[in-house]
Design a protein around this nucleic acid. Sequence first.
DNA 1: GCCGTTTTCGGCCCGACTGTTTTCAGTCG
Length: 589
Amino acid sequence: MTRQANLKQLDNAQIANILSEMAVLYAMHHVEFKPRAYEKAAESVAAFHEDIGILYKREGIVGLQKIPGVGKGIAFHIEQLLTKGSFEEYRELKAKTPVQIEELMAVEGVGPQTISMLWERLKIKNLNDLEKAARAGKIQKLPGFGKKSQEKILRGIEFLQQTGGRKPLGIALHHARELEIAVVKFKEVRKVAIAGSLRRRKETIGDVDLLICTDKPEKVTEQFLALPSVRHVFGKGTTKINVRLRNGLEVDVRVIPEESWGAALNYFTGSKAHNVALRKIAIKKGYKMNEYGLFKGKKMVAGKTEKEIYEKLEMSYMEPELREDTGEIDAAIREFHGEKPWLPKLIGYSDLKGDLQVQTDWTDGKNSIEEMALAAEQMGLEYIAITDHTKSLAMTNGTDEEKLLRQMKEIDTLNAKLRLQGKKVCILKGAEVNILKDGSLDIADEVLSQLDVVGAAVHTHFNLSLSEQTARVVAAMKNPHVDILFHPTGRLINKRKPIELDMEVVIAKAKETKTILEINASPERLDLKDNFIRRCVERGARMVIDSDAHAMEQYAFLPLGIAQARRGWAEKKDILNTFSLKEFLSQLK
DNA sequence: GCCGTTTTCGGCCCGACTGTTTTCAGTCG
């Protein structure tokens, strides 16, 4: 079993990056069909629910071929990546074109053919070279290029340097909704909708797709371009405009006629993979499908609503969060024909009854326990757990045993006061206990046993090896007082990588020890992320969705967590804080 | 290179817009 030994530490994201580089390299050399094959494989690897290295250790090359879009050829390449860190074709192609593909591709408007030309003619290898060449006016002299292409490249580089490309869901959603409100006020606008990855609630957003339904496209585009929030116009046509807002967000606007509303909504919501799969099915059934509708010959047979399109294709309606071509279409077809397993009945956006991670001014929160409780009641919650940080997290003024006991008394007093005032919200005694390097906790069991709910979390030693980190977290889950594992992978979106954790083991142990895994809804965390949530659902491990609020207004994070749960195919029953207080408490250890 | 309600061979989604052209390639979603 040579494959057991000496695996290079390549994670899914790194493998996906190399496969996607292969796609570009083949495209640069005008190889047909391979680019799409590699790109598809890269997407599945990036979204795969398990660490591919672990999958390979367990099941070998045959296991790798279980990844959608990965056949014999690419499985072999992945094996090479895992065992040797590279593979022949990759080395050869890189030798021919030794350029920084990922950073060049990130520039808006730059694709494989441009990169190829830049290398051949100007020996441009990276973003730095590109910027210099553009500033020196060398790009506009290339065949097929001109002054405008050169300026576009410079703007693209500037944008990348400012933003790093993608914005967290929470921020993009907020800005997009403001825009939606502004547009809906235009007189000639009949309907507005946010589409794209934002409608699917992906954790980060490249740009906003805004659909506008109107009979007067010229007038509406004119009004839109005159909005004070529009800073720069990249392009405008009769049905499509592309702008950058003052807040840095890039927006694609499509103007849609009423009869095509559903087709356009479907088309621009994506994902691309979901669309491609739908269109293939449409073709098989003798239709043609585009953003204007579903057509039999020249006759439009559906398009006004998404539902009627799906029905014509003999599938049930799929919620936007499911549309990633990861099994939802098969499930929708089965459901339409009355066969199981059906699509999940996703947890709804108003299904949460509690929040199990709330910090207060006892540590690093902004508001008092009482303020947080009253705000929770306003949000329609029935219970919250106060989970201030514990002592080993010195920078947050963490609580020790003595302080925790005092806080418990205060919570008793407050609960009594709230009852007298006729309030319904109940405050649970909790803590966000630190998991120390060896998996033990920084608060004594005797005190933990007096709390209603105990959350444990990793806040230090992020760099342990896979086996050490997994063992550490499992040890904490085995503690009979630990009810919830908070933000299990510790990642910060666009800032900090997740800790090395064997999630298959963590999920199995969570089930075994009756430890709940948290979906932390804080916009910078969204941890667990969607693919792990889906794995928990499949394995029957239980979860909660928490805001991790450090201030009253942060309960508004909860819908972001619900969105991730929906992307992970979670139903109400999978998320324990959809239960009433009594039911919830009965589920704890 | 992948994949199968047309298939183990022969296909592989579709349209808008831009820039530099004068009929189209490249990029994007």
